[in-house]
Structure formats: C-alpha cells, structure tokens
Nucleic acid binder design. Structure first.
Length: 841
RNA sequence: GCCGAGGUGGCGGAACUGGCAUACGCGUCGGUCUCAAAAACCGAUUUCCUCACGGAUAUGAGGGUUCAACUCCCUCCCUCGGCACCA
C-alpha cells in the first residue's frame, strides 16, 4: 500500500488508548450498581497469538460496552484467562518449558494484542484460572458438591482418548472422536469422579424457556442434548426364574405387539440368563463378539443387526403370553434400562431385527387409510392409528390408548410412568497435571475425605517432572500424594487426578465481581446485585459444553444459598466464525490472518470497522483483504469531512465547488440544503440507535452512517458564503457522525471529537437523541404502479389530501399513457408510501 | 430420520408489520487529476432487447392467496449446524 496515510492513525491510536487508561474509563466501582450493565466476553484459553477471527468476539463486546456507557450505564466489562489445559502441558512434555511459564507468557502476548485493538477492560478484575487464588474456589465448589452428594466416584466405562491420555466427558466426544485432538475415543472401565448433573436435567431443560433472549439454536442444541423422553417402565417376570426384567418404553400403546425382548450385551442379567441354556458356550461367544464391537460402530443406524436367543422367556403381564428374550447389539446399556420390549410392527429397528431372525410381526395399530398386513409390510408403521389386537383397547385411537394403557399398567402394578434423559453425569476427573487438583484425601481408616475448607487450596506442585510417556507428573510426585487424614491424622494419600477445565470456566463470571476476595469465592450480596450477566458474548462452539455446565453450577450455587438467581446469562449472543479461503482459520491450514500487520498498515479502527461491517455478526463471514481497504477509505473520507468542517467553522475556504454555483448560492437554496442534511442526520441517529438496541446489527448501522457521510460530504461542496446556517448545520452533523461512529472506531472518533473542540472523552458524553420533527419529510416521492408495476413517480407535498393526490397522479403524462382509454377499477393509496392504479382488463 | 438456521447481482450483503427489490461496501468498466502510474475523487454497473427514449426479466424450483409477495400458505430441491439403532 501507499506510504501516504489517509489519516495519522499510528499516532492517534496509542494516544487515546493511554488517555482511556489514565482516566480509568473502564474501571468500575461495583458498589454503584444502580445502572449496572454486565457485559461479558467468554474468557479465552491463552494460546500463542490471536487472529482476526478471535478479534470479532472482543470487538463486538467492546462496541456493546462503549455504547452502553454512552447510554449512561455503569458498564462492567472484565477479562480473564481460562488458563489450565492440555496444550500447555503437552508443550511442557515436548519443549521442556513449564506450563505455568508458557501460559503466563501467552497471557501477556494476548493482552498486548487486545490493547492494540483498542479493546478495553477493567483489568483490575483480571481472573486467571490457573492461579491458586482462583482455583482454591474451584476446589471449594467441588467440596460443596461432594458434601451435597453431587460429586461422586464410580467405576464405569468411560471415554478414553489414547492421544491425550485422559478420560473425556460425553460432551467432549464428537462423532466418536476427541473434541480436542480428533483421535478415536475408546472405552475403558475406570474409577472416575463425576458431577451429578443429571440431578438437574429437568430444571436445565425447563428453564430454557426462561431464556427468552438466547438464540433459538443454542436452546435447541441443549434440549437435544438433555434428550428427555416420557414413557413407562415395565417389570417383566422371567419365566421359571425369580428375577424380573425391567424395560423402558415410550410406546406402551404397542405392548400387545411385543413379540420379543431385547437386552444390551452388557446387561447384568446376561450371564444369569445364559446359565444352563442349551448352548451356553455359543451364546456367550456371540455376546462377547457384540461387546467387543466398538461403541461408535454399534451406534450407527446403518449398522448390521446382530443378536442371539437366550432360550428364556418373560411373561407379558397384559395377556400372560410367553415372549422370548434376545440379546441384541442395537440395545445400549447407557440408555433407559438397557432392555426393551420389541415391537417389530411399530419400530423400525425391531422390524429389521425380526426380519433378520425370522421373528413374528404382529400389527396392533392399524393405518386408518390403508390396513396393514404383517406378511407384506416393508417397514415398521410408526405413525398414529387405531388400536387392533389389543383386547379391551381395540378401536381406540393410539394416542388415547397410550394414556389409557399407562394408567392400566399403574393400576395393576405392572409398571409405572417415568422419564428418561440422554444427559449423563459429567465426568470431571482428568489424569493430567495442568489442572486444579481434586481436593480429596484417601484415608485407610476414614475412607474418602474431602479437604476441609481451611486447608484449601490444595496447591499444584510446581517442581515436577514431565515424562514423554504423557503420564501425569502428579502420579510420581510423592511429596504431593503423601499427606495426613484431616480427621484421624494417620498417613493418607491425595487424589492425583485434576479437574476438567470446564469446571474452572463454569463459575468465573461470579469471580469478576470480587476478584481478590480471599475468604470466600465471591461476595454474595454484590454478586446478587450484578448478576445475571446482562450480555454474554462468545462462540457457538460452547453452545452445549460451557453454557450447560455454567447453568448447572449456577443452579447448584443457588440451591446452597450463596446466590439468589438460578440462570447466569440473561442475553446470549453467539457470533459466527471468520472464514478464510473457505475454512476456519488455523495454523495447520496456514490461512491465519494476523491483526498485527493490518493494524500497522491501516490502524486498529479500520480492522474494527471492517470486522463489524463484514456481515451479520451471528453468521460466518469470509475475510477479504480488499474489504479492509474499503473500510480504510471510508475512515479517510470521514477524516477529510471533519477537517473540512473545522476549516469552514474557522471561516476559511468557503467557496462552493459543486458544479453550478448559481444553483446553490441563493439563501433559499442554502436553507434547503441545511434542512435536508439535518433530516438525514436525525434519520441516521434513529436508524443506528435502533440497529444497536434491537440486536447486533452493526453492519447496517455502519452502512447508514456511510450514507450520511456521503451526503454530508456532498453538501459540504455546496456551501456558499461565510458563517451561514449551513456551516452550523454541517458542524452539528459532523459532531453526530463522530458520536455515532465512536463505539465502532473509538480512536479516530475521540480524536475528531477533541478536534471539534470538545474537552471530555466522547464516551463520557450522552448518545445523541433524534428529533422527531426533524425526520419528517416535507416532500414525498410517490411511486405509482399501474396494475402492480412501477410506471412513474411524482413529487408531492407530504400533507397532500387524497383527492388532490389522485388528480395530480392522473395528470401525470406517463400515467396517462399507461391508463389510456381503460377504466380505472381501483385506486389504492398506501399513505405516504405508494399508489397502485388497477385497470379493468 | 428428527430439530434448528439459511438460499437475493460478479462477491459480502440491505429491504420495517405484505407496498419503489438489489441500500451500503467490494470488484469491474469509463472519466477527472498526472509526463506517467499509484492513491484520491466523479460516474456507470441484475440480466436481456434497444443508438436512444424505453421495454421485458429476476429474490433456490413449481403452484396458491392478494390491487401488490424476498416477505404469507402449499409442494419440492439444495446448503450449513445440532442430535440420532435413545427404546
């Protein structure tokens, strides 16, 4: 690019950044909560360098914070770092640099980048999750959960990432692969710590309806993830045995069509049922084969159905019929009871299984439009219909029968109505070093003992050895592991697992209110005044994990009485990704756009403006270097406009340049131009304010400011004479342009604001208000349609009456030629908008 | 399969509650300035027909409602995201 700058951004930007910091513009007194506005950006993991895609999040947040400030709010915009995690530990294993060192280095790089973007925060409140002053309280939350029975340890099949060498929560497994490294996840049976999030499943689902200001798609994703279904649990007596078999079904209306029972291969009764069967060895061999199939392969709908008959039967309680028990690969032990009553006629999976093993298919719900024939059916009939072959329920619509049969079951003690969720408990222990130690002590005498609050934090030892095997150094840190029982003081061992980093991030938004509090996690009274967060801004990738966990922890803290609200985030905004060359920016793809070079060439304001102008912020957008130049040119135009206006104010250089001087030189013409500019200015205030209040419509707000700047620049060339009202009007307009631009491009705005003779920071000034009378158009251009097609336009005074309007329109030569001799059937007037003349054919 | 969001010029995208489709920006073309270029500024730019005036045509496809449809209704296609042998 050219060395000649359109405006001196390189000297302006650092100057005002220093000014804001010296004046403590973003530093908040939390005691003053009357007009509070808590504007929160998802705190980042400190990676080596930010790119323009990351920038979008922070820029949006900064715009909101500055705008709300100008609306008179006491704005809290804090920032921190989610700084525990695997990448730093892996780097330590590879490069020998301690995670703490690399993490703190990355944090200072990121702070430098945020600063040069002109993104400001109340840095006095910085929260760093890997420091003991913070994780002490993460451990405190663990202990509280443990005391309430909501943190527990159990042996279970868990997701194991062989590459990260640690377990993963269900939420961290994506299509059978590790969310972080994409390695295929295997199953391992291990003793692990869990949080009983399932206890909150119903509330987490139900309270989604309270979140009216959350994007629909996020709520849908959470609802899908929680996966509620209502049904009936049935206890089947096993023929000739004392055990009963419990099945869960959402379709109890199909009970008369149950022709077999299917068990998951992992079902605890499998061994018992197999015992003494005709061919026990062959059966167990088939079971083992199914158990060894990978979970991912098994949970594909296309997977081949496989099964084996146990030789045993259950009794169907409704009709006393003997139903064979099969073991089937498509039944999952994790869901429901791991056993189902199979109704091939009305469930596609059961249908396929029945076809494969030649099991009977019995229709119990008939299609009212075309009766079903079990012999010729090609697929299961899963819709509603009319009950058949179902004893006293015959003839009922299946929907009604569902309820009736459920009641009948409960009445006869055959089963009871229950609810199932797909949501599993949250597995939080990790076999890694760089995380908050789980505050638990194992005493040979007293058993599992939580670390007492007075002994927190359990410090993560720093002098440890990182082995290339990838095993947690804590396993070998004898000084750390060996301790004493807090109760009986006999030698005991510490838990060496650490917590999932999502635990750290599920409460940080509370810590910002009293970040240095060292006798409790936060000041409840102040937190209750400042939360819920008024606006939360972050990436869609956290739609389930972080947002669900944060909601859970908030509800828990509410239940133990330390906070008085049970949803943390009132408004949620999820911004789209910035794409380059058709893909998400990443180092490995080599398509990362660094802000540093762009800021050097064009300034931070240009990068901010382009990022905001690129498109609707909730959508993904393709980065274009050309687009950046366009934004830069626009700021250059604004700069020249304001410079020119200042010159006019001083009485200099006042000659109309635009075309025909005579046309604009009259007093009347100058007055008309003033009116026109004032109208456009106030219309723009209205538009920009509505775009910001009604959502995050930054792109259209900016385009309307561009229109105003274009018009003002044009009018500036038509000024004639000194000190007239037009100069005054241009000056006022320039001030408003600068104000409307200020949240988006704060540096150039602050500079121009002061150049226009203002003393105080622009962000301490009130957002402009539009004058209702000023936006009213006096002359309207009315489009005229003939038979719905635009044929002409005429200019009329705004207050014209319909009779006069019609007369003028019918006198218009173009209208005359289109109407001709035809009769006017209808004359539709949309007031102040449009006219449509309907002709008879 | 289910749920959600979308489909508008060469490109990113505007369009309130049914009322001038394509604002704003990018790109392209032409011009001004210049010895020349870059930058900047001015103008044109849905597509097709026409020297032009002007006309026809277009919001994924096809129907419908209406004086009037990007917007509402029906049928279908495609893209993106989530969930998924979930009983």
């Amino acid at each position: 690019m050219n060395d000649e700058k359109l405006y001196p951004f390189d000297s302006i930007e650092p100057k005002w950044q220093k000014f804001w910091r010296d004046r403590r513009l973003f530093n908040v007194d939390t005691k003053d909560s009357a007009d509070k506005y808590y504007c929160l950006m998802m705190f980042p993991y400190p990676s080596a360098a930010l790119h323009v895609g990351h920038g979008r999040n922070y820029i949006i947040g900064d715009v909101v914070a500055r705008y709300k400030m100008m609306r008179g709010y006491n704005v809290l915009a804090p920032m921190g770092f989610d700084s525990f995690g695997l990448p730093a530990e892996n780097a330590a294993i590879k490069g020998g640099i301690h995670p703490k060192t690399s993490t703190l280095n990355n944090i200072s790089t990121m702070k430098r980048q945020l600063n040069q973007w002109g993104v400001e925060y109340d840095w006095d409140r910085e929260v760093i999750s890997c420091l003991p002053e913070y994780y002490k309280w993460t451990q405190w939350i663990f202990v509280k959960l443990y005391e309430k029975g909501l943190a527990y340890k159990k042996k279970a099949f868990v997701n194991w990432c062989p590459s990260c060498k640690t377990v993963l929560a269900n939420e961290q497994v994506v299509n059978g692969s590790c969310e972080r490294c994409s390695a295929e996840v295997s199953q391992k049976e291990l003793e692990q710590w869990f949080f009983r999030i399932t206890h909150y499943a119903e509330r987490l689902l139900k309270d989604l309806t309270k979140l009216t200001e959350w994007p629909e798609r996020v709520k849908t994703m959470q609802a899908n993830w929680i996966g509620k279904s209502e049904g009936v649990e049935i206890d089947f007596k096993i023929d000739g045995m004392s055990e009963t078999l419990r099945c869960f079904t959402t379709r109890v209306d199909t009970i008369y069509g149950a022709t077999f029972i299917a068990l998951a291969p992992e079902h605890p009764l499998v061994e018992t049922l197999a015992k003494g069967s005709k061919d026990e060895a062959a059966l167990m061999k088939a079971v083992r084969k199914m158990r060894n199939e990978s979970k991912i392969a098994r949970s594909q709908a296309e997977a081949e159905k496989e099964g084996a008959f146990t030789g045993k039967f259950v009794i169907n309680p409704v009709n006393g019929r003997k139903v064979p028990i099969w073991i089937a690969n498509y039944i999952l032990m994790e869901y429901g009871t791991g056993a189902i009553m199979a109704v091939p006629a009305h469930d596609q999976r059961d249908f396929e299984f029945a076809k494969q093993y030649k099991l009977p298919i019995e229709v119990v719900i008939d299609n009212p439009n075309s009766p079903l024939n079990p012999e010729t059916m090609k697929e299961a009939y899963i819709e509603e219909g009319v009950m058949v072959n179902s004893a006293q329920f015959n003839g009922l619509p299946s929907q009604a029968a569902l309820k009736k049969i459920a009641e009948f079951f409960e009445g006869n003690g055959f089963g009871k109505r229950t609810v199932q969720y797909k949501l599993r408990d949250w597995l939080i222990s990790r076999q890694r070093y760089w995380g908050a130690p789980i505050p638990i002590i194992y005493c040979p005498k007293c058993g599992i003992m939580p670390v007492p609050e007075k002994d927190l934090p359990v410090l993560l030892p720093e002098n440890v050895e990182f082995r290339p095997t990838g095993e947690s150094p804590l396993k070998f840190a004898k000084d750390f592991a060996n301790t004493k029982c807090p109760k009986c003081h006999s030698p005991a061992m510490r838990e060496t697992d650490t917590m999932d980093t999502f635990v750290d991030s599920s409460w940080y938004f509370l810590r910002y209110i009293t970040p240095r509090s060292d006798d409790r996690p936060f000041d409840s009274e102040l937190v209750n005044r400042w939360l819920p967060v008024d606006q939360y801004i972050g990436g869609i990738e956290h739609a389930i994990l972080h947002l669900l966990y944060s909601r859970f922890i908030t509800k828990f803290l509410h239940d133990i009485g330390v906070i008085n609200f049970d949803e943390p985030f009132k408004n949620l905004f999820t911004q789209g990704m910035i794409i380059k060359d058709g893909a998400k920016m990443s180092k490995s793809k080599g398509n990362v756009v660094s802000p540093d070079g762009l800021i050097k060439d064009y300034g931070a304001d240009t990068v901010r403006l382009y990022t905001l102008f690129i498109g609707p912020p909730e959508k993904d957008a393709e980065w274009s270097d050309r687009g950046v130049e366009g934004s830069y040119r626009f700021l250059g135009r604004v700069w020249r406009l304001v410079e020119g206006v200042i010159l006019l104010n001083k009485g200099g250089d006042v000659v109309a340049k635009g075309g025909d001087i005579a046309e604009f030189s009259s007093e009347d013409a100058q007055r008309k131009l003033s009116e026109q500019l004032r109208r456009k200015t106030h219309q723009t205030i209205k538009k920009v304010t509505e775009d910001l209040e009604g959502g995050f419509h930054f792109n259209t707000a900016i385009s309307s400011i561009m229109e105003l700047v274009n018009e003002a620049s044009d009018i500036k060339t038509k000024v004639f004479g000194k000190n007239n009202t037009l100069v005054e009007c241009l000056n006022k307009s320039a001030e408003i342009i600068v104000m409307l631009l200020s949240p988006f491009v704060p540096h150039i705005a602050e500079e121009m604001w002061h150049a226009l003779g203002k003393e105080n920071s622009i962000f301490k000034c009130k957002w402009p208000q539009y004058d209702k009378s000023a936006i009213v158009e006096k002359v309207l251009t009315i489009p005229i349609q003939v038979n719905g097609k635009l044929r002409s336009k005429i200019e009329v005074p705004a207050e014209i009456d319909n009779v006069e309007l019609k007369a003028r329109i019918m006198a218009d030569p173009k209208v005359k030629s289109w109407v001709g001799e035809k009769a006017v059937k209808d004359f539709i007037i949309v007031p102040k908008k449009l006219v449509n003349i309907v002709l008879s054919q």
